[in-house]
Nucleic acid binder design. Sequence first.
DNA 1: TAAGACTTCACCTAATTTGGGGAGAAGCTT
DNA 2: AAGCTTCTCCCCAAATTAGGTGAAGTCTTA
Lengths: 217, 217
Amino acid sequence: MAIRVTIFDDNKRLLDSLSVLIDGTPGYQIAGIYTDCSDLQTKIKKSQPDVILMDIEMPGINGIEAVKIVKKEFPRINVLMQTAFENDENVFNAICAGASGYILKSTAPSKILEYIVEVYQGGSPMSPSVARKVLGFLFKPIEANTSNKKTEEYNLTIREKEVLTCLVNGLSYKMIADHCGITYETVRSHMKNIYEKLHVASMTEAVAKAINQKIVP
Amino acid sequence: MAIRVTIFDDNKRLLDSLSVLIDGTPGYQIAGIYTDCSDLQTKIKKSQPDVILMDIEMPGINGIEAVKIVKKEFPRINVLMQTAFENDENVFNAICAGASGYILKSTAPSKILEYIVEVYQGGSPMSPSVARKVLGFLFKPIEANTSNKKTEEYNLTIREKEVLTCLVNGLSYKMIADHCGITYETVRSHMKNIYEKLHVASMTEAVAKAINQKIVP
DNA sequence: TAAGACTTCACCTAATTTGGGGAGAAGCTT
DNA sequence: AAGCTTCTCCCCAAATTAGGTGAAGTCTTA
């Protein structure tokens, strides 16, 4: 059975040549061609593709947003991103959005067919230059990737952070006082402020929040 | 000028066919072929390759170690890893060691030539299934990569874990008693046991340990 | 069936934390 | 200089937690 491919691309000429290429190759079949992502769900339901070839640069809903929707609504369908530009941000966002592969528009037609079948089989084909970028992401400060959740600041002062860190390390008020060279009462004072800023009311809550929100190192 | 390729592979038959393939193709040239990585530096200096094709499974120094040495001593030379197996660990380690690309031995000869030129041009070609794994690394809990520290078990019982979870959620003894439908004294009893098992002596320590060691979900 | 674990509960004492209040000194901004 | 934040310190009273000791019922396993 042929691999059903649906294409989204606002460049009609490219769309035409791609559809001719795909429909004209045994084992491949065009399920649908569209120049934009409006009514995305409907278009996908109607065309029932195995693989979606998605342009990034499109008017209205762009390719990245479209991928997010596709992976949410039709998680089984694998998406091959296609773009004229390979800037880091696009690549990273597309991958995060759930794209399976990422290739450049300069890719040779024969390659595109290969990539489609590879995506269909669950692989993640990418242009080598794209892959190089992805490898770069691996070593970059990972925080930039995983935590889109802005680590809230809570506006803790230096001292408060210091006290909180001690707390997380299991120190009691007394021990914190010792460690910081301040009195027990001062520690209490800081704790009161910390509780207020973190919206908590006990050491355990403060510790849990400090760790989970990465307020302390 | 032809791309100079040096191959390291302990399988002599494969080595032969690869060298014939590469040397027999215009634009490619064998710089050296070796069945192991002993005297690696010497072999590389002697052969002066542009690209190294490196098998992972080799007697003596394995491919991963070899890549580390290569990237340290000859950072400009790009290495294309080749392996029969694509288990996560190998892929990840090879990438970390500095390999530019990672392909399977099942890769077609014509592809291998493509990959070589892509590595030479600074890209990171990978078999699509390998790329899929690499994408996986991007999202995996990074700890799995960075820290090999096995989550110790501590042999907490069901009830103890439940109490500990409540604690992490900021509940006091009383609240835990309520939540679990047991008495305050029983909670205390569990806490004592938890403290002993975790080797801690306060709620804060217990919470910190529970979160950091992922004892609680 | 006896040993061992898990779970449950109780009491007492000591230590620690929490909540409320107030206050002074240093430093920065307006 | 007045206003603000930060860091510092103090007191009282109430609530919570820690440590020690003991014990009963259930359940699994040797």
